[in-house]
Simulated scan of single mutants.
Amino acid sequence: MRAVVAHAVAMTAAFAAGAAAVRLADVPRLRRLTDDLQRSRERILTAREEERRRLRRDLHDGLGPTLASLAMSLDAARITLSGEPERMEPLLSDLRDRLATTVGEIREIAHGLRPPSLDDLGLVAAIRTLAERACPQVEVRFDGEPDDLPAAVEVAAYRIVEAALANVRQHARASTAMVMLSRDHDLHLMVADSGVGLPEPMRRNGSGGMAEMRELAAEVGGSCTITSRAGCGTVVSARLPLPGRRYDRPGTGRAADHER
């Protein structure tokens, strides 16, 4: 009996030691994941604050003075109308041109906040419009229901596809490309082309919007991977979580069986 108990104790100790070793081996990997997550959050926050700063500068230093100047010009035109009506034509023509320029600036600011085509056309049609300029033949498919997507997910999906198709147009020299979107508990998207692949410097330093695509996905809690090999084309894949789904742990992509 004592021998059995001693053997059991020894087995338990060995199992505990093995489990402890596994946990210790996981510590460096968990630290790397934590550091990567922290750096990603810092980049997202920095990009967001820079965008807010740019928007404030555009409104305060650009659009604000322009509108004030137009108001002063209208006052001058009113005075001219009462005293020298024959001079009104050039004044009104100048005002019209400046108003057109101001409207263009407002549209540019609005586009930076949310692409107007998403509201005018919807996500799928807006992506088809992007695809028309990418290469000679682009197929766009959506499996699932594109309506009622969260606004942040819509914008992230559009911007990721926009950056991926820009690379197709500028670097891939591809004759065909495909944009596939599907929706279940997440929104999945893939942009693949038949081109020559991204240039080596871009693959090495992550330029060409690759960091931006990853950060767009991370900002809504998702992930984005870019795979490119010389002569084998490029594949951009992203997973963008939708509300109402929880994941067991970051980076696994495995959904929990039950909501808690």
Rank of each mutant, 00 (worst) to 15 (best):
L91Q: 13
A230H: 10
T129P: 01
P146L: 05
D120T: 14
P136F: 01
H60W: 09
D257E: 14
T101G: 13
L33V: 06
P115I: 02
S82C: 09
D184P: 06
L95I: 09
D61F: 07
A238T: 02
E86A: 13
L198D: 01
G122M: 02
L81A: 15
R203A: 07
G197F: 00
P150I: 06
A211I: 12
L149T: 04
R204A: 15
L99T: 13
I79N: 07
T12P: 04
T102Y: 00
G206H: 03
I160W: 00
M190R: 15
E108I: 01
R214G: 03
V4W: 09
V27A: 07
A152T: 05
L37M: 11
E84V: 13
R173D: 15
T66G: 10
V161I: 11
R56M: 12
A110C: 08
P201K: 05
I44M: 04
P150T: 08
D148S: 10
A125H: 11
G208T: 07
E139D: 11
M202G: 01
N205D: 15
G83D: 14
R254M: 14
H60G: 08
S223P: 04
A230Q: 15
S175G: 14
A68F: 07
P116E: 05
L45C: 08
V5R: 13
Q137M: 08
A3V: 11
N167F: 01
A16S: 13
A230M: 10
L99W: 03
P146H: 06
G253L: 07
A17F: 09
G244F: 05
G83C: 10
M180W: 08
G112D: 07
D35W: 12
P28D: 05
T225R: 09
R78G: 09
S175K: 08
S182G: 12
E132S: 10
L216T: 00
L70I: 08
I106W: 02
S194L: 01
C224I: 01
M202D: 07
L95P: 00
G122E: 01
P201F: 06
V220S: 02
E105Y: 03
L130R: 01
E259T: 10
R96C: 09
M1L: 10
L91C: 03
Q137E: 15
E200T: 14
Q170K: 11
D119V: 12
S175A: 12
T176K: 09
A17K: 08
E132Y: 04
T252W: 06
L30G: 08
S237F: 10
G197M: 02
R52N: 12
A77L: 09
R141W: 02
P201R: 07
V220I: 06
R53T: 15
L59G: 03
L187R: 00
A17N: 11
R203H: 05
E259H: 09
L130G: 02
E145C: 10
T176R: 12
D58W: 05
E132M: 08
A218F: 04
V103M: 06
R32A: 15
T227A: 12
M190P: 03
A131Y: 00
D36S: 11
A10P: 04
V168P: 00
P28W: 04
V168N: 01
M202N: 04
R39T: 09
A211T: 15
P250H: 10
D75N: 11
R31I: 14
E49N: 12
T129E: 14
D75M: 07
T129R: 13
G122K: 02
E105G: 04
M88A: 14
L187G: 00
A110V: 07
H188Q: 11
L59N: 03
A13V: 14
E108M: 05
P241N: 04
A156S: 12
